[in-house]
Amino acid sequence: MPRLARQKKEDAIFHVMARSISEVDLFKDNEDKLHYLSLVKKYQKTYEFRVYGYCLMDNHLHLIIDANGADISRIMHSINFSYAQYFNHRHKRHGHLFQDRFKSKMVKSEIYLYALSAYVHNNPCDIKGYENCPEKYEFSSLSIYLGLRHDPYELVDDGFIMGMFSKNPKKARESYMKLVYKCSDKVFKEEVEFLNEGTEYRSERKILIRNIKTKEILEFIASKLGIKEIKLHTKHCREIVEAKALAVLLMRSLCNLKCSEICRVLGNITQSRVSELSSIGVKLLDDEKYKNITYEFMKEYAC
């Protein structure tokens, strides 16, 4: 029986769920879960999507993703394929890890988004020891929402959903906690202390336009790094590795191009090398010189 076409829209928010095959846990230990979150962050840098919440259980996971103009299938294939390779290598196994393709459902209303967020954050209540305190579970974003811990990967945009409750962080967190506990038929816990009150929440959402031309990206990178554009098409030139890596990263992010399509743009390059350059580009975003490169490009070319 043929698969049904996945529902997609450029400006959609998705509830994504993935499950492992029945005979193996998706995450064998905390190290696996931490690695999965690091991959979500890696590809967030590549595709510029937003994460509104997550929960990693032993045999399945939930993500709330705002694709921000990117292709949700490409995002999740990148994350899950990389994780399966890591998992099989680390645990010395072969074969499929995920049960079929990931499931995704578009969020079509604010009310559904509220309920979905509470449902995802309520998952730890099924774990022994967390029945009455899901906010203490380390691999859910609930504690980030409640200001109980910092986001180690700076992965989650909690302000969008929380801003729908109140601009005041304390009031928003109290209302949100009540919603989570209401969804689990638990009583709201007065003793939870909200930390890191911070500034007010603002519920704002803008979609990143992905109809950029590759020529514009190559021109921008060549100008920014002070090289001739033709060099970006040169094979085996060590002095332009950074420039080429940033160009590949921006083409994957802003043009929604596959590795094979980038090969055709650059010429004289393999798909594996494009993938490698993309990973180098992600690491370069940690450098102060390049951390805002996407926004610098959009400011110059997408006006």
Rank of each mutant, 00 (worst) to 15 (best):
L148N: 09
R149N: 02
H150I: 05
H150T: 14
P152D: 10
Y153S: 02
L155I: 07
I161Y: 00
I161D: 02
M162A: 05
M164I: 00
M164S: 08
S166I: 07
K167Q: 13
K167R: 10
N168R: 08
K170P: 01
K170G: 03
K171L: 03
E174F: 00
E174C: 00
Y176K: 01
M177L: 15
M177T: 04
K178R: 10
L179W: 00
L179A: 04
L179P: 06
V180H: 08
V180T: 03
K182D: 12
C183F: 15
S184L: 10
S184H: 08
S184T: 07
D185M: 10
D185S: 11
K186F: 09
K186I: 00
V187Y: 11
K189F: 09
K189C: 14
E190S: 06
E191M: 08
E193I: 13
L195I: 00
L195G: 03
L195W: 01
L195H: 07
N196D: 03
E197Q: 10
T199R: 13
T199N: 03
E200F: 06
E200W: 07
R202Y: 15
R202H: 15
S203N: 03
S203D: 03
E204T: 15
R205M: 02
L208A: 01
L208P: 00
T214R: 07
T214N: 08
K215S: 11
E219S: 12
E219R: 08
F220H: 09
I221M: 13
I221H: 06
A222T: 10
S223M: 10
K224R: 12
K224Q: 13
L225W: 12
L225Q: 12
L225D: 13
L225G: 05
L225Y: 13
G226Y: 09
G226A: 09
I227K: 06
I227R: 01
K228D: 14
E229Q: 10
I230T: 11
I230K: 15
K231N: 11
H233M: 03
C237M: 14
C237G: 07
R238F: 11
E239K: 08
V241A: 12
E242S: 10
E242G: 13
A243H: 04
A243W: 09
K244N: 11
K244Q: 05
K244I: 14
L246V: 02
A247C: 00
V248S: 09
V248Q: 08
L249K: 02
L249R: 04
L249C: 09
S253P: 08
S253D: 05
L254Q: 08
L254S: 09
C255G: 04
C255M: 06
N256W: 01
L257D: 07
C259Q: 14
S260E: 13
E261W: 07
I262D: 00
C263H: 11
C263P: 11
C263G: 05
C263W: 07
